Amino acid sequence: MFLLDIAAEMVDRYGIDADEAVARINERFIGWRFAGDGLLFHQSEAYWATDIYFGHDVWWRGEESVDPVPAPGGWQRWLSRRLAWQQLWRLRRLWWSKRLYWKHR
């Protein structure tokens, strides 16, 4: 899988642990939907690993002059390992939209 390859690249290149890499990826791509041959897959794993670890400024200033983006905290790591919160909010939106539909019908 492409996102796991990005995490492996971050672990190899920057020496962070796998949990932190996954948490950074989840934080970066929250709310994105991946389908087909999207824009994400037009760049390499090394590109995305650098972009996620240093942020967008790295492409203009270089890796040497940019500090890494702060790692997600313990609470964010806990959430990143559990995607149920995303599903919960999707279900809540669906429930509210159906409720409004039936109310104003």
Rank of each mutant, 00 (worst) to 15 (best):
W59T: 03
D19A: 08
V11I: 00
Y53P: 07
F54V: 09
Q76R: 14
M1V: 11
F34W: 03
N26F: 05
P72A: 05
M1S: 13
R77V: 10
Q43C: 06
E20R: 13
Q76G: 04
Q76F: 00
A84S: 14
A49L: 06
I6R: 00
D19Y: 01
A7K: 06
P72Y: 03
K98G: 08
R24C: 02
W95K: 08
P68N: 02
R24W: 03
L88T: 07
E27M: 10
R28N: 09
F41M: 11
V22K: 12
A8I: 09
F29W: 10
L100F: 11
Y14W: 09
D57P: 07
P70M: 05
F41K: 13
G73V: 03
V11G: 01
W95M: 04
R99Y: 07
S44D: 09
L83M: 14
Q86P: 00
F41P: 00
P68F: 01
E27P: 00
G73P: 04
A8N: 14
G73Y: 05
Y53T: 06
E45A: 14
R93T: 07
E63P: 02
R24A: 03
R90K: 14
F41N: 11
A23H: 04
A84I: 08
L39S: 15
G38S: 15
D67T: 06
V66M: 07
R99M: 07
